[in-house]
């Protein structure tokens, strides 16, 4: 889609195509399961029977090239931060990041004395949705995912954006 992005003036056809693309991308977000620590358990619980992530269309993929959303769940140490960046760069556009839990948002309980902890994963990758909690309940993670869906649907990839 790189050829067509930001090319067309805003009109009815382009707006409907934008909506179609937004619908397709937001209702099948395949997530890259990046469970690092305790929040990974909550992510697994969200993908299990009681709260089901497949309801929203999210299927776990283990290869970054086939995933749309990277859910960074857990404490990111500085040793891991370089790898997070590398895997983020290997994902295919359009890609989104959800920062799950307080460790990924801002360093969590290790914010003050943790010399080895990355104070928030947004220091290495651009984050779209932050889900606070330690760990966030499955309902909270699902709310974060629905907010991400709204964000994807409000993107207008084809329309030329005037300054």
């Amino acid at each position: 889609m790189g050829v067509f992005e930001n090319k067309f003036q805003d009109n009815v056809v382009v707006a409907s195509l934008d909506k179609l693309m937004g619908w397709a991308r937001s209702t099948s977000p395949w997530f890259f399961q990046f469970g690092l620590a305790c929040c990974a358990i909550e992510m697994m619980a969200t993908a299990a029977s009681r709260h089901d992530l497949m309801r929203i269309g999210m299927i776990p993929r283990s290869s970054p090239r086939q995933a749309d959303v990277m859910i960074v769940a857990g404490t990111v140490t500085l040793k891991m931060a370089l790898r997070v960046k590398k895997l983020y760069e290997q994902m295919a556009n359009p890609k989104y990041v959800i920062s799950m839990g307080s460790c990924a948002t801002s360093g969590g309980p290790y914010w003050q004395h943790g010399y080895h902890v990355l104070k928030g994963v947004d220091l290495v990758v651009p984050v779209d949705v932050y889900v606070p909690g330690c760990p966030p309940r499955p309902e909270a993670l699902i709310e974060g995912l629905l907010k991400l869906q709204e964000k994807i649907q409000s993107e207008r990839p084809l329309t030329r954006k005037t300054a």
Partner: peptide
């Protein structure tokens, strides 16, 4: 590696 280590905000 360019990432700020101590508490930032």
């Amino acid at each position: 590696h360019g990432i700020i280590v101590p508490k930032v905000k």
